[in-house]
């Protein structure tokens, strides 16, 4: 799941927002895991822990999202990193894809 951070604004700082073109290096790609009902819940939890280094609780949260809602957005990354994660998840035969974050 995507994590967002609020930028810190300190006195005297002028905050500007700039429209940047999306490139392959920007974190603009979602790694999504879709439900394969054949996969064991414990297995999916285990894979999330191994691939992302998550604690069991976080891995279970996403596993349950996949199980109950049919999919879970696991992370938001640059194109290269998202590709890497999709490949890692597919090595474990999970149904994972990457989608552009519109």
């Amino acid at each position: 799941m995507a994590e967002t951070a609020t930028p810190e604004v300190t006195p005297g700082t002028i905050q500007t927002t700039e429209e940047k073109p999306k490139s392959g290096l920007e974190p603009g790609y979602l790694v999504v895991c879709w439900n394969y009902p054949v996969n064991f819940m414990d297995y999916v939890t285990h894979v999330f822990q191994v691939v992302f280094g998550w604690a069991r609780k976080k891995a279970e949260f996403h596993m349950l999202q996949v199980h109950e809602q049919g999919k879970s957005v696991l992370t938001r990354e640059s194109m290269e990193k998202a590709e890497h994660y999709v490949h890692q998840l597919q090595k474990y035969s999970l149904h994972a894809t990457m989608e552009r974050d519109e």
Partner: peptide
Amino acid sequence: NFRLSKTGQLPDAEANQRLL
């Protein structure tokens, strides 16, 4: 069965799928 994207809306989608 292994697809990089469901929507296919990725830059160089075909080339990236071929690499995968």
